[in-house]
């Protein structure tokens, strides 16, 4: 029986009492679910959606930065940026692999992406008009991503957690290089400092939106937390992130663009201005500055590469025929 057939069969068998009991027991003791375990269909679907969205985000997320590979202002920065964008391709592949263990092919996930049927992180629909955006993306966007992702290393689904361990280790270089870019700029000329502050102004709020809607408006969170996929609420992670940013911003000498931002001794948390969710929803709805461009580029690469992929598959077929005949 092929894996696919077996998986769909598993899906048609909700009445596996023994499987369900084992699943519940594993979740209760915070152990891991592995690909061949019985799992509720909703758990499988949630994971496929989350992991593939995450993979798409890595792949689409290559674009705003690849925009500057050819123009990086020093050879060292060019190499760093190239290695970073390359890592993102790698992260996408680790995640597609993890999703594939749940019974969905990468070609199907890629079709969902380029046909606009899948989501990816809205943050990558913003544009990167200046070099300082490379710094702000590393510091703020990768920083927020790491906050979100470190707890996912303990996600209950084994292949997802293992992929995230790899990814998080590699991401720590991403955030540090972003911080360094901004630090260099802030220690540079007046024009460079302005460039850095402008980028921080543009990326700060979108990076806070990466944690998702406030807890009381996040419908799927409770189930994900019960399944040990999600470990902390959106607002908890957002607070944690801002708490890390504030002292880092001081080191950089940049101002975080929120006049209301201050530590509240009573609550032990940061007070901050209301997040403008209307803009977030606009971008999510496809009306962001670069939504169309991001998908177009991915579709083009995929379409224009079709003849190469076919050639390699055909060559492999001919070679195996040759080997069989010999």
């Amino acid at each position: 029986m092929t894996a696919a057939a077996e998986l769909s069969l598993a899906g048609a068998e909700p009445q596996d009492d023994e499987g369900r009991a084992l699943f519940d027991e594993l979740i209760a003791k915070d152990s891991r679910i592995e690909p061949r375990d019985w799992m509720p269909e909703a758990y499988r679907k949630t994971l496929i959606r989350q992991i593939s969205q995450h993979a798409h985000s890595e792949i689409i997320g290559m674009q705003p930065e690849s925009n500057w590979i050819t123009r990086a202002p020093s050879l060292k920065r060019k190499a760093i940026l190239m290695a970073k964008v390359q890592d993102e391709a790698g992260h996408g592949l680790y995640l597609y692999s993890a999703a594939q263990t749940l019974g969905i092919g990468r070609d199907e996930m890629m079709s969902q992406l380029i046909e606009g049927r899948a989501r990816y992180s809205s943050i990558f629909n913003y544009t990167t008009p200046t070099w300082a955006d490379m710094g702000a993306i590393g510091w703020l966007v990768d920083g927020a991503a790491i906050c979100n992702q470190v707890p996912l290393c303990r996600a209950s689904y084994g292949p997802y957690g293992r992929a995230m361990v790899r990814i998080c280790k590699e991401e720590s270089f991403h955030q540090r290089q972003g911080f360094e870019i901004l630090l260099e700029l802030m220690q540079g000329t007046e024009a460079q400092r302005e460039m850095a502050q402008d980028a921080v102004n543009r990326w700060y709020w979108p990076s806070l939106q990466m944690f998702g809607p406030p807890d009381d408006e996040s419908p799927n969170s409770a189930q994900s937390m019960a399944w040990n996929i999600k470990r902390f609420s959106n607002d908890e992670l957002r607070q944690r992130f801002v708490g890390m940013l504030v002292p880092q911003a001081e080191v950089l000498g940049v101002t975080l663009p929120d006049p209301a931002l201050r530590f509240n001794d009573e609550t032990g948390e940061y007070d901050m201005s209301e997040i403008d969710w209307t803009e977030f929803n606009e971008v999510l709805a496809g009306r962001g500055p670069a939504n169309a461009e991001r998908l177009r580029r991915r579709r083009e690469a995929h379409d224009e590469g079709a003849w190469v992929r076919e050639a390699a598959a055909e060559y492999a077929r001919k070679q195996s025929l040759k080997a069989a005949a010999a």
Partner: peptide
């Protein structure tokens, strides 16, 4: 460098 994000397959990027 211009190929990155435009390669025929992600492995090739």
């Amino acid at each position: 460098g211009m190929w990155i994000t435009r390669a025929p397959e992600l492995e090739e990027d």
